[in-house]
Design a protein around this nucleic acid. Structure first.
Lengths: 346, 346
DNA sequence: GTTCTGCTGGGTAACGTTACCCATCGCGTA
DNA sequence: TACGCGATGGGTAACGTTACCCAGCAGAAC
């Protein structure tokens, strides 16, 4: 360990001496605690500003809260996560909270556990867990220790809050849209589950199941074709290659996420096919700015900023003492763009 | 503040009692400190495993290190940052370190300062600052308190390490490529600086200056056209719209970053122009999987994973005690793809 | 005048860990 | 035999903050 000659930092004691009051008084001002006169508050605040005092987070963590919210993201390659984060940041910043992110490693259970442990060890006041892939028991364990909001899972729990979009509605919108355009051979790219068995709580499971249900309802059960890869560009690419190799090949692909749709577009292009001339492609998420993409991908919009903002609010409420569980669901909408059109041959 | 009935967590004292040794001994084992026999180590390790002990990070922060590395990212919308993060994570995970990310807010100086303060307050052992937009003095202030590696800036400092790619080479590759294809009206999209004046340390400045230099060297000074927006999809879109409105309009656009190139493609498409038929577009960064994108964007590759990995190594070295400053530069390569071609009219 | 009440402010003991120092022990050497 | 020394293990005082409790005081109620 290096002994850095960093000058001793300003502590609450320095502030107290400078303002001629007790450390307790300063602490109370900092925490907006009860029992402080206006005069006291002003005096202490002046000393704080004068000395440039900033609370020492680690010391706070030993006794009180850290004013830190931990965000677990599978990875940072999906701009939809950025929307969520922006919403969260907007909501919590006014309350002096700071968000720190940790990559949970997508679909590797060990990495996910390490990441969630890391946040607990760092004593965050609350956790926003985006698209967890672990068993529900692990979520509940986290929730007993730390106020928790789960984003993008459908299981219900009394221990944490849920923020999600109605994936059944969203998936239905896409499939109905493609059917209305005249497509019959509609394929789907989904994400392989890592939890044993197919968990009905995972959004990818719901999107896939809804796809199958709607196809069946329209008498298209025979045309159901699913590639189970992952919600990444890579996964979309491989999934589409697999689907395009079938005979007859699909006239439309519904990718469970925009990132996968982008990968699928690459595969379609590589196969010498035109979008939407030869094949239609639709995605899910519609992150901000995605509409800008030259492709103009048809997608399902599930306002990530609102979801993030809501998650932030729920988290603050939970930190504030709420113990009842809340479930917040947004209703997604279809955003048809140029990547979908009627099939060439009927 | 809620009093959660979380069961008391396992502390070093519990481990010590269980193993019938002193807390000091346990601490030594945990830190791999000098003066511990093999037998002691085994005994303590057994107790740790048995009780499922995990060090309390905040308590560590009060005395020693936190085994945490803070990563400052402008935002998480650029997959190139994901490459960097993956490289870093790979390098540091074996040493028991954990990376936490904070959004520095791109080009808002106040937000950037808040983010960097947040990491210092949280007592991280080291900081990787990606593409900082603040004055050098602020970087050096950070570096005096905390071991620091700066990625993507060209100023030299004795206080922190630098990881960067040779942006001059990279930009030259693109412009020469476009000229070799026969283009003369080549435009550039850059990012507006937020620091007062044009800082030669910023990569966007170097890319832009190199563009102008190469154009001039080829007698094309009269065709120089720069749109100063930002390295985002939005910025690329607006920049391209601005450039396309000029008369005569450019036959090629060199966007300083892939994200901006994607936005530019949208604008080009919107204007009813074909790529590369009517206009060529090239970017910079070449994040993993970007090659998959249906567009097949010509770009400059600057292996982000290697840069992140190196940054991690340098950080660990600095934490270990190195005080001399290191500068690591990768040489970028051109990856020509389908978005660039000879201009239609000569 | 006495008691009660509500409001302010302060004293102090933790929180879990580590750096520093000291005690002990066994062994080799003068 | 006495001494010195390296190796090992432990005691303890911080680190900066907050929760809990108590003291003092002014004003109201009796």
């Amino acid at each position: 360990m290096v002994t850095r000659d960093r000058q001793r930092r300003v502590t609450i004691t320095d502030v107290a001496q400078h303002a001629q009051v007790s450390t307790t008084a300063v602490s109370k001002v900092l925490r907006n605690a009860y029992g402080v006169s206006e005069a006291m508050r002003a005096k202490v605040q002046a000393a704080i500003d004068e000395l440039g005092y900033r609370p020492h987070n680690a010391a706070r963590a030993m006794r009180g809260r850290t004013f830190t919210i931990g965000v677990l993201l599978p990875h940072i390659r999906n701009p939809f996560f950025a929307d969520i984060l922006d919403g969260l940041t907007e909501e919590i910043s006014a309350s002096g909270y700071q968000a720190i992110m940790v990559q949970s490693g997508g679909r590797d259970p060990a990495a996910e556990r390490r990441a969630s442990d890391a946040l607990v060890d760092r004593q965050v006041d609350g956790v926003l867990w985006v698209a967890p892939a672990c068993p529900k028991a692990q979520l509940e364990k986290m929730a007993t220790d730390t106020p928790t909001v789960v984003l993008g899972r459908h299981d219900r729990s009394a221990l944490y809050d849920c923020v999600l979009d109605d994936d059944e509605v969203g998936a239905e919108l896409v499939v109905e849209h493609l059917i209305a355009l005249g497509h019959r051979r509609i394929a789907h790219i989904t994400q392989k589950d890592t939890i044993g068995g197919r968990s009905a709580a995972l959004l990818q499971t719901i999107r896939a199941a809804t796809y199958e249900r709607v196809m069946t309802e329209h008498g298209l059960a025979g045309h159901i074709a699913v590639a189970a890869t992952s919600y990444t560009e890579e996964g979309g690419y491989e999934g589409a290659r697999e689907l395009l190799a079938r005979d007859p090949r699909p006239t439309a692909i519904f990718a469970g996420a925009d990132q996968a749709a982008f990968g699928a577009l690459a595969a379609v292009h590589e196969a010498g096919l035109a979008v939407p001339g030869d094949i239609s492609v639709a995605g899910y998420d519609n992150a901000r700015m995605t509409g800008l993409a030259h492709v103009a991908l048809t997608s399902v919009d599930q306002d990530g900023a609102i979801m993030g903002k809501t998650a932030g609010r729920l988290l603050l409420e939970r930190i504030g003492g709420r113990t009842s569980a809340v479930r917040f669901s947004v209703t997604p909408t279809l955003v048809p763009r140029r990547s979908t059109a009627p099939p060439a041959t009927r």
